[in-house]
């Protein structure tokens, strides 16, 4: 490094200093009696991560949040794609209801939607004369996937619309049919712009999985609450910091990567 430091080098140094200060603070706190608390957290960490005290099998905890996020994202991708094509349909009869659904879902709070799904979806579904129980996990997946789908659709629509109209004209002039224009010209360009949006959405969804605790599944928050009822007041702080850190450690890299990709996409078109 050369003296004087540039702005970015200075910032790096300060960031390093903050991390060191935090580490120092935790060490000092541990020396002053915090070590016992951290030990309790360490003891319970497998339970917090996997839902089982030994760390296997993955029945709950943060692992369940990840499963919940992946499941909801998959379902949202399917519904969102359908919704997006509906919103871009030529017929008003298709387009307007799709817009209404998208706006309704985007304007409803995730928690309220989750609660609504929890109570509206019956406990048992009759399919071909067989009664199937709907587990809370499935309800949570559906409840979380609804607002995600609406955002997913909006990302698709925004990216497709951001492709310059000249691309449409050029493709039409070259004799492409409408479907071929979509699949060969527009979507390949739009996809590059959608991916960062989807990654951000996934990070947002992951954060929202914390709400699933209201459905009673054994996710990280439910596990945390059960644990805390057995701990003294002082330890609670350490447990909360640990859980906050779990989410941060999972979501921040995704958000960072999405931002990098956004920057690289910005340059590739006019």
């Amino acid at each position: 490094m050369q003296w004087p430091l540039t702005y970015h080098e200075k910032k790096r140094v300060v960031q390093l200093a903050i991390v060191l200060a935090l580490a120092g603070w935790i060490a000092a706190d541990a020396l002053l009696g915090g070590a016992a608390y951290w030990q309790r957290v360490w003891l319970r960490l497998p339970l917090l991560l996997t839902g089982s005290g030994s760390g296997w099998p993955l029945t709950g905890g943060f692992a369940l949040n990840i499963f919940l996020g992946l499941g909801s994202m998959a379902l949202a991708a399917i519904m969102g794609t359908l919704l997006a094509f509906g919103m871009m349909a030529k017929s008003r009869l298709v387009r307007l209801p799709c817009f209404f659904v998208m706006n309704f879902l985007r304007n409803s709070p995730w928690l309220v939607l989750l609660f609504a799904m929890l109570y509206i979806i019956p406990f048992n579904v009759r399919l071909f004369g067989v009664s199937i129980a709907v587990p809370a996990f499935v309800k949570a997946v559906i409840g979380l996937s609804l607002p995600t789908a609406a955002n997913f659709a909006e990302i698709i629509r925004g990216a497709v619309q951001s492709i310059h109209s000249g691309q449409w004209e050029a493709a039409r002039a070259l004799g492409y049919m409408p479907m071929a224009i979509y699949s060969r010209i527009i979507l390949p360009q739009a996809l590059r712009r959608m991916i960062p949006g989807w990654m951000n959405l996934y990070a947002l969804l992951m954060i929202a999985t914390s709400l699933a605790t209201v459905t009673g599944i054994q996710d990280v928050l439910t596990t945390l609450n059960t644990l805390l009822s057995m701990e003294n007041e002082r330890v609670i702080v350490y447990f909360y910091i640990t859980t906050l850190f779990l989410f941060f450690a999972y979501c921040y890299p995704i958000a960072l990567l999405a931002r990098r990709m956004e920057q690289s996409v910005k340059g590739d078109t006019l």
Partner: peptide
């Protein structure tokens, strides 16, 4: 563009953006 101030502000932003608001509230 004061390096040390920016580093602190960015830390604040990233911490609150990347953790669940519900958990923040409980915390």
């Amino acid at each position: 563009r004061i390096a040390w101030l920016d580093a602190l502000i960015e830390l604040f932003v990233e911490l609150f953006r990347n953790t669940p608001p519900l958990l923040q509230m409980l915390f």
